[in-house]
Design a binder for these strands. Structure first.
Lengths: 225, 225
DNA sequence: TGACGCTGCTTACACTGTAAGCCTACGGTA
DNA sequence: TACCGTAGGCTTACAGTGTAAGCAGCGTCA
């Protein structure tokens, strides 16, 4: 029935697979359909290949997900170390946030992945280096890193789970939610929605800058032992 | 083969299912085996029931996950509103963190769930209320809430994804990672691991307090318009 | 009594990850 | 030139997933 051992047209040799191509296809698929769309068959299909072929380049689905997370980290702009540490941290945070918004599925994958890849390690090392260069002690750098990244991940985690992307969508969605909300039961929620979130010009994305500025302003190399 | 329409022993009527029991069983299962262990069949099995019976109380797996997240929020201690706002926020954050550590799977579920439940709404409302009572403007309360919760979720997200729970495990794991780490390639990572994380008495959990104090100290009702 | 609705059960289906094993093309050697 | 080992595809098969469709026993009300 099916031709056994399919033969390619002799002129057009098939582009050989490798780990990078597999991971790249998986990332593209996740961007398009979310993490649940990343099935071995779908990834293979988008490469014109059968599912089991992927196992020559990837240990399994888990390994593939690890690779995807590392590929995302590779996109984050590393601090160069020459600038003022606050500027460096702000730019790195902005870059990381932009990357994570481009790949919203990655935030949810951060937990449950326990094997950091090359890009992840390089990224962490560069950030620590920038903080050390900015005058932080070893412990201080570790703490500053923890505080900044916690805020960063947490903000993006909330941001990507919002059921809207634009402020036009926001108005629509918030209106819908609001109508189902009892002002007696949730007075403050109603207040903040109508008087703040639904005001023209509001964009939750702007809040990121407020928080980062607040945190960077409060972090000082001398404060942390 | 199997008796059709199984009849229970007449004396021992089966405890009837309801949404709360289903969600409760799912939470217990997730605590035990992680979120991937929450299959409809497994949840049903732990209740002595078949998978399809759950659909009488839950719209589907997605709805079940929504219910689980809401059940977790219900465990968080609400701010009472009478204390100093900084104390209230600190206690709420500590409580939330304790709850999320008890149910580590919940953090990863926070994104991808877009339908907040009763407990979630009540929780958000209470936090906003405490901030308003502390003197924050509507916009200021929204911002403070965003900063605090971003840090909270982000910290827990990192915390629960660490591949160890105790500092004994830490030593073991960090030692293993370290041995695979090239000091030339990742100098700062090696430095912070050996000189900080592997020092006796180190516990990443303690960093939470540092960050929360820093953020609460930097947040002032008057700063935010 | 009878009808009805609630709840749990059975069956069935499409789809998942992946183990096992087969086939072909390529590269190096005799 | 002929040979053969290996790498990287392919096929098949299986256990486990969520859930749609429909059946059976029970309690409640007319």
């Amino acid at each position: 029935m099916a031709a056994l051992g399919k033969v390619d047209a002799p002129g057009s040799r098939r582009e050989p697979l490798d780990r990078a191509r597999v991971v790249g296809a998986a990332v593209a698929l996740a961007d398009d359909k979310g993490v649940t769309g990343v099935t071995m068959r779908a990834v293979a299909g988008s490469l014109g290949v059968e599912a089991m072929s992927l196992y020559n380049h990837v240990r399994g689905r888990d390994d593939l997900l690890d690779g995807m997370v590392d590929a995302v980290f590779a996109e984050i702009e590393l601090p160069t170390g020459e600038a003022d540490w606050q500027d460096a941290m702000r730019r790195r945070a902005d870059s990381a946030r932009a990357v994570l918004r481009r790949h919203p599925w990655a935030v949810g994958l951060l937990d449950s992945r326990s094997a950091p890849g090359q890009a992840t390690l390089r990224h962490h090392d560069a950030v620590l280096g920038a903080l050390r260069a900015g005058g932080f002690s070893v412990a201080g750098a570790a703490r500053a890193f923890s505080v900044i990244d916690s805020y960063l991940y947490g903000f993006v985690l909330q941001e990507v789970s919002l059921p809207f992307r634009s402020s036009a969508e926001l108005n629509e969605v918030a209106g819908g939610i609001l109508s189902g909300l009892d002002a007696d039961q949730y007075p403050h929620l109603v207040e903040v929605t109508t008087e703040h979130a639904l005001q023209p010009g509001y964009d939750y994305a702007d809040e990121f800058d407020v928080g980062i500025s607040l945190i960077l302003g409060a972090l000082q190399p001398d404060d942390l032992p």
